[in-house]
Amino acid sequence: MLELSDIDAGYGGFQALFGISMSVQPGEVVAVIGSNGAGKTTLLRVISGLLPASSGAMSMEGVSLRQTPPHRIIETGIAHVPEGRRLFPRLSVESNLKIGAFIPAARKKFEERLAFVYELFPRLKERRAQLAGTLSGGEQQMCAIARALMSGPKLVLLDEPSMGLAPVIVAQVFDLVRRIRREGYTVLIVEQNVRQVLKIADRAYLLEVGRIKASEPAAELVASDEIRKAYMGI
């Protein structure tokens, strides 16, 4: 579904990603783990076009992403839930969802999808008229995911969904990820919370200073001593 081969990217003179090659198959939950500054967020930003790659090739279902302008990448079926949720704080929950359906293809199905995400996250329906900035952290994450689903994506990019949330809420967030997986979405998730994310992922890539160090089924990474020591603090 998503294919990256030999992607380089960086900010100004600083190169953050070196020759990244990876793929995501339909129906999978793929995790990207690694320490702070390893380039995980950069990787997602490159895929969704927020940061242009400097070389390499990327495609989504055969459509070249490097040739697509950033604001049209969403039309290939990729929805990105950015780090820190990034809701529009002074718009209502429903307006946030509406802007998630901005692309022409999604506008036609707005009512239908709105009903679907409200069913998925009943809490959001209760708070539909509230300003997004007044939601709790967990609710904001719900809203951010729901906003991404409004575009009708095939692949959802999740950037640190548990960041800045209380431990109890973190568990809820991973439940959310399970739920959207069950609905048939393919997920590429970036997480610091390695232990939790490996429980829900099928496969994982280990990113170290901008390079992929390992790519294995999640279960094997969990078993690996190195990973346990370095990232799970065991």
Binding site: S48, G49, L50, P70, H71, R72, I73, I74, E75, A79, H80, P82, R86, F88, P89, R90, L91, S95, K98, I99, G100, A101, F102, I103, A106, R107, R147, S151
Partner: peptide, 21 residues
């Protein structure tokens, strides 16, 4: 849609491409 996008862009410029705007 365009109206909401206009309000949204004033609140968070960077992520607008993610919305397809």
């Amino acid at each position: 849609y365009v109206g909401i996008a206009i309000r949204a862009i004033a609140q968070d410029r960077q992520i607008m491409p993610l919305m397809g705007v």
